[in-house]
Computed example of a mutant assay.
Amino acid sequence: MAATTPTTTSVCRALWLAATLVAIVWHQWVDGCIQAIWDVLRASTVVRHDTFEPTVAVTAFLVSFTFWKALDCWLPAGLTKRWRIGESDDMSTWHLSKWWTRLLQEPVWYFAPIAIFDIMYPRRNLPEKAPSIEKLAIDILAPLFIYDFMFFFIHVTCHKVRFLYRNIHAKHHSEKIMRAGETIRLSFFEQWADVSCSIIAVNVARCHPLSRALYNGIIVYLLTELHSGYDMPWMLQNVVPFGLWAGSRRHYVHHRDGRFYYQKFFCYLDDFFGFGEDARASIRTGKEN
């Protein structure tokens, strides 16, 4: 596995803590900044259009994939190899050109149906008041939690029911090397289920439109990070204490051995249902077949 330094991780945690303290102590000033930003965004034709949220998601995918591609292919290997997980520094079986083509095609398949529907049925109504910093944080964490909860059970089912794994989910596990491009190596059902869980999550959480836009960008980045094959000190799996965040290390193990780690972001369901660290430890010591 990749190595992270305690000092770097501590610095990252300190920065997160400092940002949290600023938000708490100067919350009125922060809320005022958020309101000013929302006033500008709300006056924009692009933001007022129904397709703004999927546009944010598509743009986030393009930016995220370009970021990981830069680490994979454009920077000297010596700068990034120390953070690569397992065998993910061996790119001999990973076809970059194929996935870059797929990446350019993906927005068309994802965006076109939504754009057509939005043009036919405009329904976006933007409130004048922006969310407070507390509301913004809750509006991002709550749908992440709900999405992760729903997709866990779909994911487990796709692994445990052999017919579903063979015909739906096996495609996602077909490459040995983990790269961000694996995020979109999905069957149609998986794409539909993934997007549906996310849409349901933001609606159940009753998120503000600004929160929804930020959530779309954040979850896209987190999904690409999950499949990136990197373990960097500033990633949430290292910054969030007590092992509460899953992250790329656990997901790498999941892709290598599909018996463990079905949650994408959090860990509590894996641990509760016996797919977490205890299960791996018992298999390593020969207590299970």
Rank of each mutant, 00 (worst) to 15 (best):
M1R: 11
A2C: 10
A3E: 08
T5N: 11
T5A: 09
T9R: 04
T9N: 05
S10D: 13
S10N: 10
R13M: 10
A18I: 11
A18G: 13
V22K: 05
V22M: 06
A23G: 10
A23T: 13
I24N: 08
V25E: 08
Q28L: 10
W29E: 14
G32N: 03
Q35N: 07
A36H: 08
V40C: 15
V47F: 02
T51L: 02
T51V: 09
F61N: 04
L62M: 09
V63G: 04
L71Y: 04
D72M: 00
D72W: 07
W74H: 14
L75A: 08
I85F: 12
G86R: 06
S88W: 03
S88R: 06
M91T: 02
H95Q: 14
S97I: 12
W100E: 12
R102T: 08
W109L: 13
F111W: 04
A112F: 06
D118E: 14
D118S: 13
I119Q: 03
E128H: 14
A130D: 02
P131Q: 07
S132F: 09
I133M: 10
I138N: 00
A142C: 06
L144D: 05
F145N: 04
I146L: 14
Y147W: 13
F149E: 06
F151G: 00
H155A: 10
T157A: 10
R166E: 15
A170E: 09
A170W: 02
K171Y: 12
E175N: 14
E175M: 06
K176V: 03
R179N: 13
E182H: 13
S187L: 03
S187M: 08
E190I: 08
D194Q: 11
V195S: 12
A201Q: 02
V202R: 00
V204P: 09
V204Y: 05
R212W: 03
L214G: 05
G217I: 00
I219T: 03
Y221R: 07
T224I: 06
H227W: 02
G229L: 05
Y230Q: 05
Y230S: 13
P233L: 00
M235S: 09
Q237D: 10
N238V: 00
V239F: 11
P241L: 08
Y252A: 06
V253N: 05
H254S: 03
H254E: 03
R256C: 08
R259W: 08
R259C: 09
F260M: 12
Y261V: 02
Y261W: 15
Y261N: 08
K264H: 12
C267M: 15
C267F: 14
D270Y: 01
F272E: 03
G274P: 10
D278N: 13
S282Q: 07
T285Y: 12
E288L: 13
